[in-house]
Amino acid sequence: MFRHSTLRYITLALLTSLALFQAFTAAYFGLEVLTEILILAMLVVALDLVAGFGGMVSLCHGALMGVGAYAYTTVSVTLGISPLVAMAGAVALTGAAAWIIGAICSRSHGIYFIMATLAFGQMAYSWVFEAPIFGGDDGLGGIPRLDLGFLGIDLNDSRSFALFCLAALGAVYGAAVLILRSGLGRSLSGVMHNEQRMRALGLTVWRVKADVFGLSGMIAGLAGALAAQHIMYISPGLLAWTVSGEALVVVILGGLGTLVGPLVGAAAFVLLKHELSAITTYWHLVVGLVLIGVVMSRANGIFGWIEARWGARLDRRLADATRKSAPEEVLNDA
């Protein structure tokens, strides 16, 4: 089950402050980068939920995000329905698609699960690529952002949109924690640990997997709807399997099954990408080397490494501190 250690709280506070600082001080380009990080962070939280806590390594989460983006665009642009409804629709539709994928793939494990999800992702990709209503190779443009005018907020302003995405990421993270701490989340960790045992206890394992996959899909759908609003233009490339692969890289880079780690990973990945691509076109090589380094070090990603070194020490020191302060109180009482 998911637990918040002191180190995790500190990291969350640090990340939030940095994001807020950036949101209020950065100029246009800085805000674009921040928003890119925030949207990727949502996607990798969704992926960590299934891969890190359920052992369901998915290679279709990029495609799910694409489904969210296309659903939002189709409803808001093609059908001309209000963006708010379009967003709700995108989240619901992506969640439903993910639930079905999760239900079908639930019986396969390991490499077979990965391949099955990849197949679903590729099916979505080719459908979007071929179908005329999705604009084919050219994609779709003129995508409106959510209208929060009634709150006095104009999301067409980069700063407001970045803050909006930060709020959405906060909500997504909170939802993920709640899911992991629910009865469903407890069962999910049981299934990841020993599926056969949970079945022998009477659990309908495929339902647990499908439900969590569906919830994860809803988060990916939300990330997609926001990505579409961010760039205001979408193309089939959004559903390419490399997007899923990149998300997986970020989760592993950050720390699988830590929820906080993937947030760190998302920030590190996007920053690395922008910094390096300014210097060299071979920036993927560097990311590859970092990934190899992380995997070879046998640490659970960057955050897992930090956690292994300092997490326990921090908790112990806190425990010591509380123990030291306790006898004093006893003395005072006497």
């Binding site: 629910s182 009865g183 469903l184 407890r186 339902r207 647990v208 439900d211």
Partner: peptide, 23 residues
């Protein structure tokens, strides 16, 4: 407690509940 809770939750029908902690 959590080990026993996983099993008890299945019996009590709370093992797939999203809105509350089974334990």
């Amino acid at each position: 407690e959590e080990n026993l809770g996983l099993a008890a939750a299945v019996h009590a029908g709370h093992a797939t509940q999203l809105w509350s902690d089974s334990l």
